[in-house]
Design a binder for these strands. Sequence first.
DNA 1: GCTTTCGCTGAACGTCTGTTCAGATAGATT
DNA 2: AATCTATCTGAACAGACGTTCAGCGAAAGC
Lengths: 195, 195
Amino acid sequence: MARKQGSHSEITGPRVREAAQRLIARHGYAAVSMRQIAAEVGVQAGALYLYTPDKQTMLFDLMKDHLTELLAAWDEVVLPEGAIPRLEAFVRFHIRFHLARPEAVVIAYMEMRNLEPENHRAIEALRHGYEDRLEKILIEGQGAGDFQIPDTRLAAMALLSMLNGIPGWFREDGRLSRGRVERIYWNMIRRAVGA
Amino acid sequence: MARKQGSHSEITGPRVREAAQRLIARHGYAAVSMRQIAAEVGVQAGALYLYTPDKQTMLFDLMKDHLTELLAAWDEVVLPEGAIPRLEAFVRFHIRFHLARPEAVVIAYMEMRNLEPENHRAIEALRHGYEDRLEKILIEGQGAGDFQIPDTRLAAMALLSMLNGIPGWFREDGRLSRGRVERIYWNMIRRAVGA
DNA sequence: GCTTTCGCTGAACGTCTGTTCAGATAGATT
DNA sequence: AATCTATCTGAACAGACGTTCAGCGAAAGC
């Protein structure tokens, strides 16, 4: 027994990625074995190494791709004029983007400590870039007198913490719709920054 | 070689606990082995089983004790009158308590998924109790017209997410003092709830 | 000083880990 | 029809895992 019926790398590749993402999001990187991921795909463990050089790279690629997509998506948003509308755009964008990818989000914020030093630095730089994009809006609004925030960096971290909590409790079939969550969050954040 | 000079369970016990807390906070439960914990204490792996029935119980006890202390400490706070001062008391209490125990906090919020079902339920119940105590203040203030929050549960989750982010970036020797962080956070939260 | 108890060692257990690789087979190419 | 190549198996590797336990030496109780 070897190559299976209709097996293709364009099919198995994404399936490996999805299985890894699902399992790591649920149980954590260190708790998931290559054999578990392989079983989820319906393949032997050795076959995974046709799609990744090793387990660590698998994690790194998941995180890197997520953050790269996040930055690219934000940079494509057409920004309105004024810091307040821009902050609103950021908040709504962030909530939508993250609620659409709960597994990637969990991994990006829980598995930092399982990255080897070099990978850790690379991912941290990407994340830092995203924080900077939010802080830029806050600095802008602070300069224009739209916001009252004594420390824009702290405010950026606080707002992101608040936003990042959402995928932790939001349920698609729960009490609140995505739109309602967006609206309530924007209201809280608008007031929090003094706008 | 067996029992060492001056060795006592009252000394080794806490040392095991501290080593486990430190290592699990840093690397994660699944990534830390009993042999690593033992090495940190300066003992063989087998000796750990004089202080815990197994690794899972070790994690459970760390989380349970942390949350139990948290609830007990909050319940001993003498609450002022009025929802706004009470919310301020909560915010300042929360920041102080958590900044004093960064390792316990990281574990309590990252290792839920490594708890076996029964333990998971127990810890979730404790955490739920803490969320309820915050929501109680929000409901109180909403009823009195002090706050403008359309959904007290969502607001409670949002505020806790925001607060729980602090130990992730706060540095004792950093740009901002604890007192300043407390003040800025309270200001943001006060405005966020419309007070 | 003798005995009991406590705290720990060091080896062993069966199982699982990430990773490698020769060999096998299905599908594509000629 | 014959050849080639991409995809996967199944076994093997050395080492690490959580946990158990007989035995031993130091401390405590008498």
